[in-house]
Amino acid sequence: MTLTATSFDWVRQVVHRESAIVLAPGKEYLVEARLLPIARQMGLADVGQLVDNVRTRPSPENTRRIVEALTTNETSWFRDGDPFTALTTTVLPALLAARGAGERLQIWSAACSSGQEAYTIAMLLEDAMPNAAGRVSITATDLSREMVERTRAGRFSQLEVNRGLPASMLVRHFTRAGSEWEVNASLRRMVTATECNLAAPLPRMGPFDVVYLRNVLIYFDLPTKQAILRRVRSLMRPDGWLFLGAAETTLGVDDSWERVVLGRSSAYRPLKGA
């Protein structure tokens, strides 16, 4: 056991602050089991070192990974389904009408984790807009190399494909690969995965027509939120669309966005001249 009481308390406080989830005393083994892979990936020997590392050099990205490792087992496919419905019913038809026939559309799934969001978008395109699917490319980025590699591989565990993926889409878009399921090659071809740290200057990408930046901003302080939104906007087309998480907004953070209600969800568009 490498986890001291002080380290465990620190983890408890962080998880409670970021997610409002309470880790009861006695859950040290859970913290060990879930955080050890993160520690190993960062080249650290154990969870104690991971905690020391993040405590002495605070990093929202690493905090997010710790919180996510302890609070979510799997990411859902159609997590908060409405932002996906809006994509094929409103957003893409509008963009396709506005662009020339040969012009490509680019979608960015930022902080993509293991790729569920990017592949959800790809499946929707193939099913609902098969004629347009060939004109769309999807860029998936994550801070973690491991997540980028998982996204590229497009392989998901049984538990992962059980989470909010309609069975009809599972059988249409996946094949079995050992104990896992693999996304079909046609979808993998639509998705390009690459490493990217949202809190640092962004690589040359885009320009993007649609950006999914969901459940990311909540982990950052106000100045960093503002910087991220500014950088994201610089990679977007002027008539692009930004989707945030259900509990996130640009209001009070960055006033250069216009909020647009789309059915039961909402999106943000760059304000002209802002």
């Binding site: 087992n73 859902s76 496919w77 159609f78 538990l159 494909v161 059980n162 989470r163």
Partner: peptide, 24 residues
């Protein structure tokens, strides 16, 4: 699905999986 089932949850599943399917 061909026989007429509407959805399919594979064991092992978590409570969240059932909730997600019911939401769909």
């Amino acid at each position: 699905l061909a026989a007429g089932a509407h959805e399919y949850v594979i064991k092992p599943f978590t409570a969240d999986a059932i909730r997600d399917k019911l939401a769909l």
